[in-house]
Amino acid sequence: MRVSRSLRATVLLGVMMLSAAGWAAGKCERLIVTGSPDSPPYMWRDPQDPRHLMGANADLLGQALRELGIDVEFLYGGKRAQAQEEVRSGRMDMLADASLNTAWLERFDYIHPAATYNEIVVWVRTGTQADIQAIEDLHSLAGAVSQRTRLTPEFESVAAGELQLQHTSGLTAALQKLVLGEVDYVLAGRYAAMVLVQTLGLAATLQALPVVVDKPGFHLALSFNSACLDPWLHGQLVKKMTESAASGLADEAVKRNLDVWKSQLLAPVSKQ
């Protein structure tokens, strides 16, 4: 009986060692990450090195992966749809700013909670006497939104059926329509619009209302075709993103990157 127990213990130890060795051999050591190149302060191309992306989500994920002993590089993978395809195919490992979309649950392994959230608010001309407290108050007004502004599917459905929205090529164009009186309001991310309003010298002309009409999250999403797809990594990133939200680290990253983006917008254009 003693021999049998000793043998079982030896076999069990061997299995555990083989399992540990197998996990270590397959452990992810490097991630190639991409995302939207035009979503500051969350993610955008580094003007000093356009091959790479920068932003709040890059900072948060980069810090988390360094603490886990994993190298990471944030590479430009093309415009938003191109970047998504790079990750879906497995040519790149992860999106750092994926919108939550039920159709994509078969393409990506989403990390919850989101790394950051974008508050969509209503911008109006200063002094406008519109009593806007909820989305219902926008029904009779003409509005604009940049086609680059990401909204939740639920809000997009409501907007399509209930709001009179013009879609512009970018946020600057939408704000210009508001200044000229061509629309009554603009729907835009609080932080992105705030920086543009300041840099365009419109701080005395436009203001954001307190009501938040939508709050889409920017998630980390690992490709199901990535060699780094691993339950351990998923669990560790869930823990890291939960901690960063609770500690205020995510908010700090957004505010820090707002300042960086604003300084880039105000920097003089160098002549080649």
Rank of each mutant, 00 (worst) to 15 (best):
Q129V: 08
P50W: 01
S36N: 15
A160H: 11
L187S: 09
D131W: 01
L151V: 03
L222M: 14
T10G: 03
M241H: 08
K262Q: 15
N101H: 11
G78Q: 09
A253R: 15
A98V: 06
T242W: 01
T10M: 12
V145C: 01
D230R: 09
A56I: 01
H52S: 09
I111P: 02
G170L: 01
S140H: 13
A9S: 11
P216V: 06
L75G: 02
A227F: 02
V186L: 00
L222A: 02
G14S: 12
A64E: 07
M16S: 13
E156V: 12
L180R: 15
K240I: 02
E67S: 14
T168M: 05
N118S: 13
E252C: 00
W123Q: 05
L138T: 01
G90A: 02
P41E: 08
G161H: 07
A130C: 00
D230C: 08
P216M: 04
A58H: 11
M54G: 03
D93A: 07
M92K: 07
P37R: 09
S226L: 01
A246Q: 14
E162H: 11
M17G: 11
R2C: 02
F155Q: 07
H234Q: 06
Y117K: 08
L266N: 08
S263F: 05
A56T: 00
D46M: 00
N225Y: 11
L138H: 08
L233G: 05
S89M: 10
T10F: 12
T126A: 13
S36V: 06
M43V: 10
P37H: 07
Y185P: 04
L175S: 03
A192C: 02
A24Q: 11
G217Q: 05
E67F: 00
G161L: 07
Q48T: 06
A83M: 06
Y42P: 05
A134L: 01
